[in-house]
Design a protein around this nucleic acid. Structure first.
Lengths: 217, 217
DNA sequence: GGCGTATGCTTACGCTGTAAGTAGAGGAGA
DNA sequence: TCTCCTCTACTTACAGCGTAAGCATACGCC
């Protein structure tokens, strides 16, 4: 009986991330993942304690791609680059933010959090006190994950194929223009193309950072 | 055989929302909902075409609680009050934003969107062009839903019981302080209590609106 | 009174995550 | 070399899910 190359956690997580990227979060089941690895479902439990653990694992893998900001830069630039790096890392794997929101298991690992630690450090260095840093961090994270989720999740899913449309404006496909005049003008504009989610996010981030400057005390 | 008071869509949605509030999104299954209504699961399909349709329905019900802003106010105030109203409506039903992100079905109804229409109108009136309004709307929505999701979802779920802790900072329960010095300082601060998610959100919203003013051209 | 239609129930299918038990291969110690 | 221990993977099984198909009942209208 031919001995198979043994599994390990890394291979499982790699395959899980690939499968999720390809088929969406719904397509990622233990059985399908096992099949993709040429293995039975229960074998995965030797390397992953749970499905939640599996999702944690792929989230951590994506977090690890986030680059910490250069501590020499002013705090505004550090916040901007850290936030953008998070945004880009998760944009490459659109289902992962949904996994983060959906699952509810272990505390996130130290490794995943280290870029955020640098970000908090930048805020402290920029003159924020504890509450200010807490709020600024929450605001930035909310904007990053909110942008990701609104441009990826159910909101926009039904029109994702339209011209790269994104965000909440996009999830209306037919409407009575008289009932929602401004909204339908906006929607018509988006259908002219030229919507770029990352550029939109950058704009929003710029605005937020500008506003945070006033609160830095 | 005693004739039962007949079901209707409204009753189904009411019960679904109540069940979801009470048991979380995972606790909301067709079978359990049916049992709560004293009915068999398949009977629900006479009033709801899908589980996704069910989730849409409860989301719409929450959207309907959002109050449109006073069109006499300056656009900044309109944005602020509309965003806050959305935040509060969804905060009362914490699982609904997750349902919105998770499901992927019909376009959202006109009724649900009318407060957003007013918001877009305020942006146009404030001097934003199409792209500016699009971006501002996306930024505000991202912040609202990001705040809701981070303070409710998997991120914070494992520590939700700690002192109302919220947002990304909260999902670390034990860590090596040396590895994440700034983060653990911040975390220690949050455990002193006094974290108020809505106040934090308001601060973030103020910052964002301040930043958007610069972009209003 | 009879009939069409709407409502709800029953059964069934294929899917899910995962608990429990079993088989076999690799390495360690005698 | 033989034996035993551990680790990996497989098999089976269970309870739950969403929902398709078919059947029974009760109401409103002719």
């Amino acid at each position: 009986m031919a001995r198979r190359e043994p599994l390990n956690r890394e291979k499982v997580l790699d395959a899980a991330l690939a499968l999720a990227d390809e088929e969406g979060l719904d397509g990622l089941s233990m059985r399908r993942l096992a099949k993709a690895l040429g293995v039975e479902a229960m074998s995965l439990y030797n390397h992953v304690s749970n499905k939640a653990d599996l999702l944690d694992g792929i989230a951590e893998r994506v977090f690890a791609q986030v680059e910490p900001p250069d501590p020499e830069l002013p705090w505004q630039e550090q916040v901007r680059s850290a936030a953008l790096s998070m945004y880009r890392a998760f944009r490459r794997h659109p289902v992962v933010p949904m996994a983060l929101v959906t699952d509810r298991s272990n505390p996130t690992s130290v490794r995943a959090l280290s870029p955020l630690d640098a970000l908090v450090g930048a805020l402290y260095a920029g003159g924020f006190d504890d509450q200010g840093a807490w709020r600024a961090l929450g605001a930035v994270n909310s904007l990053v994950f909110g942008s990701l989720l609104l441009s990826t999740g159910g909101f926009a899913a039904d029109v994702r194929e339209h011209a790269g449309a994104t965000n909440v404006g996009a999830y209306v496909t037919q409407m009575n223009p008289a009932a929602l005049p401004h909204f339908s003008r906006l929607l018509r504009w988006t259908q002219g193309g030229g919507v770029d989610p990352e550029a939109d996010f950058r704009h929003a981030l710029d605005a937020l950072i500008k506003g945070l400057e006033n609160q830095a005390s």
